[in-house]
Amino acid sequence: MAKSLLGDTTVLLRRSLRHIMRSPDTIITTVIMPIAIMLMFVYVFGGAIKTGSDSYVNYMLPGILLITIASGVSYTAYRIFGEMSSGIFERLQSLPIVRSSVLWAHVLTSMVANLISLVLVVGVAVLMGFRSGAGFLSWLAVAGVLFLFTLTLTWIAVIPGLSAQSPDGAGAFSFPLIFLPFVSSAFAPTETMPGPVRAFAENQPMTSIVNTIRDLFAQNPVGNDIWFALAWCVGILIVAYVFARTVYHRKIA
């Protein structure tokens, strides 16, 4: 069964990746917004925002990476919706393949597409002056946190992809996810925010993830943030995965 799942997922993953390679505009569209936000915040607001950090691009890059992922997973929802509405899913169900391999192929495609997007965004950040003295293990930890975050958001994206009534509806879920990093420690220190906003900012998932990545890049002690980040990601991932599987089985039943 496991071997069959792996084989079927690999075949379908190859198929999905071919779609991406044939229309790379989705990746380009994904990275344009985070890069535009980064340019705007570094060059327009960067000189006026006091963060206590030497370089504002270093300070805000973790938040931009999360926005990149949130922007990227909306295309996963679009792709799933497209295949649901065009009847490809039903066609695949008629084949002797493991049912869940269809979803896993989309999830893994999202992981690959987001990896490419993240590399492009980090590349632009380096051109804008981003520097990190982080060692190999720190970079590995950053990659691990981003991998887990991408996996979590991708499984969230599967739900509207399966259940939306229109393409706009499928992609709309990503707007709050893109907005959340703004109301966190991603762009400005939470100490400068008024009481209720600060309370929300300090206790929402994005802040602990941003702080973890920022501390890893800056070679600072990570503290409790990494555990909060992992707990948020794993908790949301489990809920999203179970919910997505339920919706999927209901759809194909």
Partner: peptide
């Protein structure tokens, strides 16, 4: 967004020190 999230830090940078 600009008043409640960035207003504190941007306001301090205006020179008057009036903050938000």
């Amino acid at each position: 967004l600009f008043v409640y999230v960035f207003g504190g830090t941007l306001g301090n940078g205006l020179g008057g020190g009036g903050g938000r």
